[in-house]
Design a protein around this nucleic acid. Structure first.
Lengths: 111, 111
DNA sequence: GATATTAATCGTAATATTGCAATAAATGAG
DNA sequence: CTCATTTATTGCAATATTACGATTAATATC
């Protein structure tokens, strides 16, 4: 039915899934990389960098903002986006914790 | 139009996005955690553990298999799934590389 | 206030994802 | 070969995502 049954899973599982979803699009990854690369925030010249239309970029920015990864502050007629380091670290932590679990056992192989 | 414009992005960006998508669902995270927890592979008793119908689990397993994270080997009437440590490590590496980039600068804040 | 610039929102079309009932395929036991 | 068990596939309905044209909102400049 297209709707995820979130009630079947733990808070952590749902949260990690949501975090993964936030970066599960090349445009959003490209946006984040641009924000990192230009350090200082840079605003909507993302539209020029990536080849997507302005509303599309705006929508992706909204999702990233909703996920908490970035924040935007109005600056004249334009808006300045940048990564929230705290949330970014949380993401790093969550993903690392998830992946690290296996390496602890691993080896044995199985089937 | 619902179709991602992959041609606009780099191979790495598309790949990371795909990897994120593979784990961007709580059921798939739960499945992976079960496979880790029970170390030895465990097959379709995932259906009992999670509360989803058998075809739904089967579909998620297929996606994880397609992403390369897991592999399944037939064992009698049942199938034994387990994590592919090599691919898992690749995932860990990719995500870490992505997140680590910011911490190198960070601090300055911006807007 | 009128105009230009930039970004957000609305509306809509195309496509993708999620979930499951029904069914098929594969294998082991008898 | 028949039957039971387990998993995969098919077909379909509900919902979500992606993308963009058209428009609106916000702000700066004149």
């Amino acid at each position: 039915m297209g709707a995820t049954k979130t009630d079947l899973f733990t808070k952590k599982q749902n949260e990690l899934a949501k975090m993964a979803k936030a970066i599960a699009h090349p445009a959003r990854i490209a946006i984040l990389q641009q924000l990192i690369k230009t350090n200082a925030c840079i605003c909507g010249n993302l539209v020029n960098e990536l080849g997507l239309a302005q509303p599309t970029i705006s929508q992706h920015l909204k999702e990233l903002k909703l996920a908490g990864i970035i924040q935007g502050t109005v600056e004249g007629t334009s808006v300045c986006y940048c990564i929230d380091p705290k949330v970014w670290q949380k993401y790093q932590q969550f993903f690392n914790d998830f992946f690290v679990a296996v390496n602890e056992l691993a080896e044995g192989g199985c089937c």
